[in-house]
Design a protein around this nucleic acid. Structure first.
Lengths: 239, 239
DNA sequence: CGGTTCGTTGACATAGCTCAATATTCGTGG
DNA sequence: CCACGAATATTGAGCTATGTCAACGAACCG
């Protein structure tokens, strides 16, 4: 159940055997969600946090006029709302972008961990810090990259993150979003996203067919995206 | 020295007397920076974290073409790079936007805190989580708000954050950025920022003269910005 | 006073939006 | 297997937002 989370945490630091056991015992419930189902509602005050075991989920906010902005994409092994443990009130919603399998961890148990397991606590803290680093990278992408480069950057990021949790097959990975949803990620209209995709298609850097993305030229894609994975902290060191 | 940090933390939860003492003893050095000086360099691996005692600082990233995107603005009481404690490598730089007074806290000492002071550790963790919440709000602003509304939102946010650390005088506060720097915050060109400012000026929601912003109509400004401070977690509860 | 940075303006080019129509794909029931 | 409706993808037209460039004015500093 928590294999992906472990792969995730272990990309930053060693997780000891007792810590692993402890984590797996923390799962007090699991559940599956259908596409478009809300996993956590905006404004709610959950008493548990959600670990994404499998599938794609998105954090989002709605504007008064009905426009949606997706602020993060989550994949297997991501602790999608560990935040709620300390923030208490959800300032955004989380929705399933594919069928999702999730595990719930009780906030009381997480608090116990924070009282008794300093190293593990730091790893969980780190997990939320990486989230923040990804947010910053997205801000940069929205503010200063062309849409073409922004999209390329997103694909690079997802590819690397999926690799960590073994969800890639060579240069291929499952990407279940619709164009409308992807537009909500990039903060542009569907029409413009579609046109951006066409430009990128002509450059033959990747294909996106039947919910599968295949990277055709990793070097050129990285160049276009100016992708530097430093912000993902993918190196094992004592934390 | 750490009064502002305490005001900051206490806006979320009670900080006990021993915790306060502990925090103040953690400051192992202080320093002043001039405008435009780098407080922390991108790519560095600092062995201490920086607490902003007074002034304005910005986190930023440069693109290959020299364009800059500011990903966060920090004010007195903000723990500007607490991240580095666990992320180790700075994925962005931090620059002084005004003369800055900062305090340094050693990572070794922070680690001790994380081993022995669970509640205080959670408060520090929370501090970084609020940072993340602000990032998300900025992503939403960049993706789905008009520039007018984005700017209004930024002013609302800064006003509320400055109020927490007692840096406001009625509806006035010091705002030392140039238009060029503000453009780097919003991710637009200076020219366009200037024109956006003019439109807002005509609506008389606020003035910005001599580095001082005065909010003239808080209600209308909030409306325009669709500002909802929930994401700042400004309520005292056990964390 | 003179240089430098900052703010403002206008002209023009490009990116991105909305709307509306059409094509394509997919799932479902017959 | 086919027919149909719903969701998704694609296209084109015209409009708005935003960018670049270049000039000029204002404020600031020594």
């Amino acid at each position: 159940m928590i294999e992906s989370l472990l792969l995730n945490l272990q990309s930053h630091d060693v997780v000891t055997e007792p810590e692993r056991t402890l984590l797996s015992e923390l799962v007090w419930r699991e559940r599956r969600f259908l596409v478009d189902e809300d996993i956590v509602a905006e404004g709610s005050r959950p008493s548990y946090s959600t670990l994404l075991v499998d599938g794609f989920a998105a954090r989002y906010k709605f504007m008064a006029d009905g426009a949606r902005q997706i602020t993060a994409l989550h994949v297997a092994g991501d602790f999608v709302d560990l935040h709620a443990f300390l923030l208490k009130t959800m300032d955004h919603g989380i929705v399933a972008m594919s069928p999702c399998h999730v595990a719930f961890l009780d906030h009381g148990d997480l608090k116990d961990i924070s009282e008794t397991q300093p190293h593990l606590s730091r790893l969980l803290w780190l997990d939320t810090l990486v989230d923040g680093a990804v947010h910053r990278e997205w801000i940069v992408a929205m503010g200063r990259r062309s849409k073409k480069s922004h999209l390329a950057h997103l694909i690079c990021e997802l590819y690397v993150r999926l690799q960590v949790v073994r969800r890639t097959d060579g240069f291929r990975f499952h990407f279940p979003l619709t164009q409308l949803e992807l537009a909500d990620v990039l903060g542009i209209s569907v029409v413009h996203l579609n046109k951006t995709l066409q430009v990128l298609r002509r450059e033959e850097l990747f294909t996106w067919i039947n919910q599968m993305i295949t990277i055709l030229d990793w070097e050129k894609l990285q160049d276009l995206a100016q992708f530097d994975p430093t912000y993902l902290s993918l190196n094992v060191e004592a934390r």
